[in-house]
Amino acid sequence: MALPISTRDGFAGGLRTTVMAPLVSLQERAELGRRTFLSHDASIRVADSVALRSLRLQGIEQENAKLRALLGLGALLQWGFVPAEALKGRGIGDEQTLTLSAGRRAGVEPMAPVVSDAGVVGVIERADATMSTAILWQHPEFRVSAMSLNGEAYGMVQAHGGTGADRYFLELRGVLLRSQIPSGAVVVTSGLGGVWPRGVPIGTVVSELKTPDQWARSYLIKPAVALSDLGSVLVLLPSRTRAGVDNVWTSAAGAELAARRIVSSIDSIARLTGDSNSVRQRRVIADSASARAERDTVRKRIP
């Protein structure tokens, strides 16, 4: 303490860099270890929280995608619909009915169509003031007039029924013998009867069913809407049903059909010319265009 400051600082600095350096390093590691030990519990809590959130993330992403799709559908429809939350119950028969969070006050009426971004969900059975009940396409009393996308075949869609996996399919009945629908073809509402507007997707043809009917064909339909994934739906008002929804769902379905026609044309050309490489390239382009059309099913139209 009696030394001049410069001498003192120089001497102390020399000691720090020589004798004390390893001890200071030891102290630094000890303090780091103490901070790590103290923050261990907090780190574990953070890690557990992150793990829990990541588990929920996939479900949240799916729900977000569905809500975005529904928002897009709403943007395309623009008017004449009521959004509603699907409130699913746990009782017997609840897989065939659905309680919705919108009722008469919102404009919901019995026999109003219930749709999602993918297509037909069901129809309103009864409407209370603030909530309503709908029968889903799985219900044995559900019926909807249907047609193929190209309009060449008409019939009536109802639940396939049965047990096991059969109850998750639909049937298209009463199709004239001369009208044959290939597998994979999209079936939409025909608009006949006034309950459903024309052009709402119902499902895709899986195969033809063998029935005793000799004057008509029946087809097994894979529904467009999976009832287990329902969260939010739209209820179409009568005015919207009368006005029609032709350009909302069928644009994407039509684009997919056009893409398939392109691919088949390319194949025909390739067979004639024998150029397989260009066929593969063009098929890739056509498939990507088809996939983009599916994603853009409910994209907002650019005026």
Partner: peptide
């Protein structure tokens, strides 16, 4: 003295 090198402001107090 050695430990005081870490406390330059009180260099020498620890030695004393």
């Amino acid at each position: 003295v050695v430990t005081d090198s870490l406390v330059p402001g009180a260099f020498g107090a620890g030695a004393l």
